[in-house]
Amino acid sequence: MSKFSHLLELLLMLQYKEFSTAAELADILEVDKKTIYRYIENLQLSNIPVESKKGRYGGFYINKDFYIKYPKLEMEEMQALLLASKILSKENGFFYSDELKKAIVKIKGCSLNEDDSLFDFKENVAFEMRKAGNLENFNDIISKINYSMSRGKVISIKYFSMNRNSEVEIKLNPYTIFCKNGIWYLIAYCHSTNRERIFDVCRIKQLKITNDIFIKPRNFSLKDYLKSFRNLHLEGKIRVKVKFNKAITEFIEEGKWLMDQQIEKTSDGNTIFHTFVNELGEIKSWLLGFGTKVEVLEPEELRNDIHKEIAGMAKLYIKDFMISE
Score class of each variant (00 low, 15 high):
residue 271 T to W: 07
residue 196 E to H: 11
residue 110 C to V: 15
residue 268 D to R: 09
residue 240 V to W: 03
residue 214 F to K: 00
residue 299 P to L: 12
residue 56 R to G: 00
residue 232 L to P: 05
residue 154 V to G: 06
residue 49 P to H: 09
residue 7 L to F: 08
residue 307 H to E: 09
residue 22 A to L: 01
residue 157 I to T: 02
residue 146 N to D: 00
residue 315 K to Q: 00
residue 113 N to A: 10
residue 156 S to R: 15
residue 62 I to F: 01
residue 224 D to S: 07
residue 245 N to L: 10
residue 227 K to A: 09
residue 130 R to M: 14
residue 282 E to H: 05
residue 81 L to P: 04
residue 197 R to C: 08
residue 25 L to E: 02
residue 126 A to H: 10
residue 287 L to C: 02
residue 152 G to F: 09
residue 317 Y to D: 05
residue 64 K to N: 08
residue 190 C to Q: 02
residue 228 S to H: 02
residue 47 N to K: 14
residue 284 K to I: 03
residue 270 N to C: 15
residue 55 G to T: 04
residue 162 M to E: 08
residue 83 L to W: 07
residue 302 L to C: 03
residue 161 S to K: 07
residue 258 L to N: 04
residue 63 N to T: 02
residue 109 G to E: 06
residue 12 L to V: 02
residue 55 G to E: 07
residue 285 S to Q: 14
residue 59 G to L: 12
residue 309 E to C: 09
residue 14 L to E: 03
residue 72 K to R: 06
residue 251 F to S: 01
residue 49 P to I: 11
residue 312 G to E: 10
residue 41 E to R: 07
residue 131 K to W: 12
residue 274 H to G: 06
residue 301 E to K: 15
residue 106 K to W: 06
residue 171 K to F: 13
residue 73 L to Q: 00
residue 305 D to Q: 14
residue 5 S to P: 00
residue 164 R to W: 08
residue 324 S to L: 13
residue 292 T to S: 14
residue 282 E to K: 05
residue 222 L to Y: 03
residue 1 M to Q: 06
residue 281 G to D: 14
residue 81 L to Y: 04
residue 27 D to C: 09
residue 278 N to W: 06
residue 222 L to N: 04
residue 254 E to S: 11
